[in-house]
């Protein structure tokens, strides 16, 4: 009797060869990820290849001031006669650089702090209260203050946007660590004498990757918006650099007569952020249905 059971089990184990569909094919099957990343790809290419399409974004042409969109100047011109189309294409570079840089830096810092908070009891309270404190300072105000203290450069703007983004990443990583470390398979690894660095890298870290990739897209989107708001308020990157926020900031005075100065970069920005957000939502649905319900 016992032997029959075991043979059945053996056969069963060999026969039930259900292959796990790969993550890549899952992602390609997701329409949101496909369209979002296609759109994003176009924006990135346009930003990189901007010089091929357009004139100099900073060349002044006082005769053609505040011209509406036309065949010659697709998006019109601003109060110095600069070509808004050219400025918008070049502006994409700033937004993308800020978005990607902030996402990478914030996720890296957040990952380290989150792991420490989740695994080192003594530091947990200190780190988490600090994060609570940081979270209670409105992000834009914090960024404004940091920039007004250390001067506006691309670098300080990135740092100023990173700092308020970190706490959410820390909380996410810590939450994952606290859940996973209670899992029986982690306890089994502890019981098997696996050392802490291996437990972290083998059993805990892989669980943070999916939520962090999703979080990275949201951080990237939020960073691009914050950068544009800082520029718009006149507290961002130096005005001579054609970032979307700066272009729109300069357009404010002339809004009633030349609304295109704000609209075109505004739409470009909204579409870029939308593309990133759509990719984020798609990734969230594909990578982990559990977080999908939480967010």
């Amino acid at each position: 009797m016992a032997n029959v059971d075991q043979d059945d089990l053996m056969a069963d184990a060999i026969l039930s060869r259900k292959e796990n569909p790969g993550v890549v094919s899952l992602m390609l099957n997701n329409r949101a990820i496909f369209w979002g990343s296609s759109l994003l790809f176009v924006f990135v290419m346009v930003a990189i290849l901007a010089p091929l399409f357009t004139a100099d974004p900073v060349s002044i042409n006082p005769i053609n001031r505040l011209k509406p969109p036309s065949a010659a100047t697709l998006f019109g011109t601003d109060f110095l006669g600069r070509d808004i189309f050219a400025r918008t294409l070049y502006g994409a570079r700033i937004s993308l650089v800020v978005g990607i840089a902030v996402a990478i830096i914030a996720i890296s810092i957040g990952l380290v702090l989150g792991l420490v908070a989740g695994y080192v009891r003594v530091l947990d309270a200190v780190i988490m209260r600090t994060m609570d404190g940081l979270m209670s300072i409105p992000a834009i105000l914090l960024a404004i203050a940091l920039i007004s203290l250390s001067g506006a450069t691309l670098g300080t703007v990135i740092v100023a946007i990173v700092i308020p983004e970190v706490p959410r990443v820390v909380r996410l990583v810590r939450a994952v660590v606290l859940t996973v470390r209670e899992e029986p398979y982690v306890e089994a690894a502890i019981a098997a004498g696996t050392k802490l660095p291996l437990i972290l890298s083998r059993h805990i870290l892989p669980n943070t990757i999916a939520p962090l990739i999703v979080q990275a897209t949201y951080v990237c989107a939020s960073a691009m918006l914050t950068e544009s708001i800082l520029g718009f308020l006149g507290a961002g990157i130096p005005p001579e650099i054609p970032s979307w926020g700066n272009i729109m900031s300069e357009g404010r005075t002339y809004f009633q007569i030349s609304p295109w100065i704000i609209f075109f970069p505004g739409i470009a920005l909204a579409l870029t952020v939308l593309a990133v957000n759509i990719v984020g939502d798609g990734l969230r649905d594909t990578l982990d249905p559990r977080i999908a319900r939480k967010m």
Partner: peptide, 9 residues
């Protein structure tokens, strides 16, 4: 452990 679904990574 008890839960065979959570005992293996």
């Amino acid at each position: 452990f008890q839960d065979p679904y959570r005992s293996l990574n």
